[in-house]
Design a binder for these strands. Structure first.
Ligand code: NAD
Ligand code: NAD
Lengths: 219, 219
DNA sequence: CGGATTTTGTGAATAATGTAACAAAAGTGG
DNA sequence: CCACTTTTGTTACATTATTCACAAAATCCG
């Protein structure tokens, strides 16, 4: 029988890598669910995620007990539990700053909503872009970020400005009372202690590919 | 005096995290160079990258000695050395499969070339997209991937198809003799041992933001 | 030229993370 | 209802990564 007990943190600090893997588990579990699976063992899930089975059990153990011994994990319940653990059991109100090439692609991406992030505002400083409609949103002037954010109760900001503008965009977001920032611009930025900051840098991954090819060729 | 000796691997296996940081160092060093700096100590660079100074010295030590004691690192030389270490001292011929929202944004992104990756082919399976010109490239049918790749000597493939098509795209790329793949689709794929594979998943980072906000709120 | 100063490169110490092993729980079938 | 199987949760162990601490090199300056 499923065992959806309340999630409670057991340990003080959870490895960053664990969080990344939990996100992966959710993704893979949702695929499995779509394929009609019902229950899965840590071993099978491990194979699908390309990690060690003990790793999965240990990752889950940071948050509680979600499985049934001798049986495995009920996929639907595990997804729900993991989402609660990650804080995506509800929808996060999100805004995007910098409606360029990448910003547009993100705004048009329908999956954000499904995954728990609703983009409810798009901001740019280019007067030619302000007023334009992108994916059902009217692009607004960055100056109105504070006013609008408070009005809408925004929690997360996505930065897709050029790198030299990333800090300024971050400052606006912080002023607007945002709680977390995802920065796509390849520039280090600084924010107050209480604001959560994450970077996405495609090039780091590309460099990694290049390095590993070079390595393979050398030996 | 600068000390640009030939790069030679010292240790067998280099931590994955080190590679990610080397990429970060290059990015930050290039910014510093643009701002007119000439020499930098591991301590200052560490501050700019938000890591520990010993960490930097140790990361570099995997590849050789690049600094001058009592002075620091000559930025220009260090950038060149790091690029050689990472295998981006030359341009990698790259193709992109899946010319949708994201694919288009990437094709329009001018920085790829500057950073050592030239996108020389764009492929899609949608007959309405084939023949279209995007950022100076004619979109070609995925079926021609093999033929074209060999002709052009392609080394790296970028996948931006929907997740359910990612495996198929990967198969085509592998057939075409590609050496490495960067997959933006949120789907695990399998490739032969000799092909280097990396994933980029925005949502994992967003989940991480959500988790850390939740964590901060709880305590 | 030599002592003071700086900062690297590195081995040792510490901390974090990942893996293996196994006892405890749940289910199964005679 | 009791062995038997399965698979979790957890402890103990192994590996890997990070930080510390300091000797060795380079420069600077009197
Ligand atoms: N396009 C890609 O595929 C890609 C890939 C990797 C990284 N990136 C990074 O993502 C960022 C955006 O890339 P892009 O290709 O969309 O660039 P872009 O130039 O097309 O778009 C940037 C947008 O930001 C707006 N902007 C500038 N300053 C602003 C400010 N202070 N406030 C609000 N808006 C502001 C500009 O008006 C423009 O619309 C860049 O930092 C880039 O390096 C992009
Ligand atoms: N758009 C975003 O901002 C965003 C963000 C995160 C992740 N992603 C992921 O990136 C991928 C692409 O996203 P998108 O928004 O560009 O989707 P999209 O639907 O706009 O584009 C996908 C493209 O791939 C093409 N395609 C489908 N099957 C193919 C095949 N077998 N060979 C070649 N081409 C094929 C389609 O014709 C289409 O042009 C998706 O997997 C998505 O989940 C996108």
């Amino acid at each position: 029988m499923p065992n959806p007990r309340l999630f409670s943190l057991k340990s003080e600090s959870i490895p960053r890598a664990t969080i990344q893997r939990l996100a992966l588990y959710v993704q893979v579990l949702e695929d499995l669910q779509r394929e009609g699976s019902d229950v899965i063992s840590s071993e099978s899930l491990a194979k699908a995620c390309d990690v060690n089975p003990s790793q999965i059990r240990k990752d889950l153990a940071y948050f509680g007990e979600f499985g049934v011994r001798g049986v495995g994990y009920y996929i639907q319940d595990l997804i729900a539990s993991l989402k609660r653990c990650l804080g995506i059991d509800h929808t996060w109100k999100t805004v995007l700053v910098g409606v360029g090439n990448l910003g547009r692609a993100l705004l048009n991406h329908k999956e954000f909503k499904l995954r728990g992030f609703e983009i409810i505002g798009a901001f740019d400083c280019d007067p030619f872009k302000i007023g334009e409609e992108v994916s059902g949103l009217e692009v607004m002037c960055t100056k109105r970020l504070m006013e609008k954010s408070h009005e809408l109760g925004v929690e997360i900001g996505i930065i897709t400005t050029p790198p030299e503008r990333a800090q300024r965009a971050a400052n606006h977001l912080v002023e607007a009372g945002i709680k977390g920032i995802l920065n796509f611009a390849p520039a280090r930025i600084t924010v107050p202690e209480h604001v959560v900051l994450e970077y996405v840098d495609f090039f780091h991954h590309l460099y990694s590919v290049a390095f590993n090819i070079t390595l393979a060729q050398q030996k």
